[in-house]
Design a protein around this nucleic acid. Structure first.
Length: 314
RNA sequence: GCCUUGGUAGCUCAGUCGGUAGAGCAGUAGACUGAAAAUCUACGUGUCGGUGGUUCGAUUCCGCCCCAAGGCA
């Protein structure tokens, strides 16, 4: 892990106002934004990924957006490598990186001491293991993990197939238990890094309202048209880029599975649940300084308090 | 006005041959190391529409009333 100068990280659930705040923050302190968002990665995703328009970016450079195409594969490790490189370049320019995003795993990959193993995903092994689970049962797959790596098995649920498969994958490919190669988040995530982590928090009801309004506004901006364009590309619906909130539900509508009205309602419900999961994730990161957005409505006051905290960190 | 079918969890409904009830979805809480907007876990008391009757006991059977949908006028 390389040495780093101080930088800022802004996290929070979807629709909490991170992007706008980061632009203002970057403006006021010579910063550049580094997105930490698993959907903004994709070039062809705009409205549903809630990317700011060029106009809204107000000339502030944004990184880690539009880096791969929707058909490409992309992993946390890819994110970490490329984002760290971006941050190095920003520091070299004498600017401050402002990491902005709601993908908790990406945030941890960047700010924590996440030691990824050298083992990349092996699609053929994965599908082989998935087939095994399908024919022999999830319990049988889990039993294999139990014999190879009892420690990891003890913290995973047999039904959590993705994690069971990943653990088996690493263990089989290296011949060493997965648990010897990774630490749990609890031990690693609070590493002492020179970052100021800011979290944006809303009352539940306020966030729900913001989510509803944002989905309606996305539809008004042409989310359906954007999804139709994706639909014609014929990318497998299981591809991560097709699983994004908004796209997933509208693709179901376009393939005749549900009514448009229900799809839009579904987007709102699923987005709310996602926001809840994000809050669960971030709430255990004790480094985060939470700002209550319901009460702190003055942008200038917000920016000033963040800058003050950042100066104290330095 | 008459007939029919319904009224059970926030929603859609199942069920109780009379011993006060349970699924899916929603909701709440949590987990999370190379798919993460993904994936996974735990959590189920509600005047069983109202009221009177029969009964040891009624959400269940009977009467009346209210509400909804459909049909006949």
């Amino acid at each position: 892990m390389r040495e780093r100068s101080p930088y800022i990280v802004v996290v929070g659930p979807t629709a909490s106002g991170k992007s706008q705040l980061c632009v203002a923050l970057a403006h006021s302190m010579n910063g550049e934004v580094v997105s930490a968002d698993s959907m903004q990665i994709y070039k062809e995703l705009h409205i549903g990924a809630a990317k700011l328009t060029n106009e809204e970016m107000c000339g502030v450079p944004h990184h880690m957006m539009d880096v791969v195409s929707v058909g490409d594969s992309f992993t946390v490790a890819d994110y970490r490598d490329r984002a760290l490189k971006c941050m190095d370049e920003i520091f070299a320019r004498g600017h401050v990186p402002i990491v902005c995003g709601g993908t908790g795993l990406y945030i941890n990959a960047l700010t924590g001491k996440l030691d990824f193993t050298a083992i990349q995903g092996d699609p053929s092994l994965r599908s082989e293991l998935a087939l095994y689970a399908k024919t022999e049962g999830k319990q049988a797959l889990f039993a294999r993990l139990k014999t190879l790596d009892a420690l990891t098995a003890s913290r995973l649920h047999p039904n959590d197939q993705k994690r069971v498969i990943r653990a088996l994958e690493v263990t089989i490919l290296t011949g060493k238990p997965y648990s010897e190669q990774v630490q749990s988040f609890a031990k690693s995530a609070y590493a002492d890094v020179p970052a100021l982590l800011i979290g944006l928090r809303w009352e539940r009801k306020s966030l729900e309202l913001r989510i509803r309004e944002r989905v309606d506004s996305m539809m008004a901006q042409g989310l359906l048209e954007e999804t139709k364009t994706l639909f014609t590309k014929g990318i497998p619906l299981e591809h991560p880029s097709m699983m994004g909130l908004g796209y997933r539900q509208l693709l179901q509508y376009l393939s005749g599975q549900i009514a448009l009205k229900d799809a839009v309602e579904r987007i709102k419900v699923d987005t709310r649940r996602f926001a809840k999961r994000q809050m669960t994730w971030f709430s255990r990161d004790l480094r985060i300084h939470w700002l209550n957005m319901d009460t702190e409505t003055d942008l200038c006051v917000l920016l000033r308090s963040i800058r003050t905290m950042f100066m104290e960190l330095k």
